[in-house]
Computed example of a mutant assay.
Amino acid sequence: MNKDKAIRVTNFLKKFSPCDISDSLVKHGFPNGGFFPNLQVQSNFELPIVGEAYTVLYAPLDDPRPAISKSYIDSIPLNSVLIIATTQILQLPYAPYTRINNAMYGGLMSTRAKFQNCNGSIIFGRIRDIQEHNNLQYPVMSYGLGTTAPKPVLKLIGINVQLEIVLNSYPNKTTLETIDPGDLIIADENGMVRIPISKIDDSTLENILDYIPKRVKADQLVAEDINEGKEAAKSQKLRRSNL
């Protein structure tokens, strides 16, 4: 996505919640609504988090791929959302969702990310230095907290690469979703949603965006109807009939 379009789209999405985005994604063929479960807000900040994904991948030390020596934190694009994950072998489809007790992200990283005008950091693992993130008023989400740095057990193997996230969408069935560099990320206290820019064309993206305010308006009318004593099911059917 070119810079001007990215700015237009992200500014538009800031007006809505991840729930609104999910409704539109479901309408356009994404059954899970782009939702990545189990992430928790870890710092005080102005919601929502919106931006293009800048991805970072960690692996166990015995992974055959070479470690990357350069730091990912000094190359964050303006107004992006930093997404950090591990390889699949370190992920779990159930709590605590990661096999790693070490934190993958800390306060100094948020300090640098904020200085570079990153819009937020979302970590599919543990973080540490919780008070530092709060003092910065910088947006951070993660699966949980820890105290130990990642270096004793993890190595950096990918920057701006596809991330594969293990999910548990149905009983006894593990599923996999991907996040690609440049995908649109929207997150707040409800959770994180991804619009898969790499998997849709420009026309589909415009249709997804166009549906969002129409659905929001329809649901506002449903709420008004309910407050007037009307049945929810009938009102939903009526107000959404032309969407």
Rank of each mutant, 00 (worst) to 15 (best):
Q40T: 08
N168Y: 07
L156P: 08
Q88D: 13
A149W: 02
I208H: 06
M1H: 10
S203P: 00
A59G: 05
D180F: 10
A187N: 06
F30W: 10
T98C: 10
V161Y: 02
D74W: 01
P60K: 09
Y170G: 00
Q42P: 00
S22L: 02
T98E: 08
K173L: 10
R215I: 13
T87R: 10
A59S: 15
N117G: 00
V216D: 13
A232V: 10
P66E: 14
L176Q: 10
L205R: 07
P171W: 05
A67V: 09
K173E: 14
Q220C: 09
Y143E: 04
C118M: 05
A6P: 05
C19S: 14
P66I: 09
S80H: 08
N38R: 08
Q236R: 15
N32C: 00
K217A: 12
S235T: 07
T175N: 12
N172Q: 13
Y138N: 02
P60G: 07
A113S: 14
F36R: 01
T204V: 11
P150F: 00
V81E: 03
L57T: 01
N134R: 11
A233F: 07
S22C: 03
D210A: 12
L176F: 13
Y170R: 12
V50A: 01
Q42E: 11
I130M: 07
I186H: 03
F45T: 05
L221A: 09
L78G: 01
E189K: 15
D210G: 06
S43A: 14
S17N: 03
P93F: 04
D23P: 00
L176C: 07
R126P: 06
F36H: 07
D23S: 14
P139V: 01
I7M: 08
E164T: 11
T147Q: 14
N117F: 07
R99S: 13
Y138V: 05
I179C: 02
I73W: 01
K14E: 11
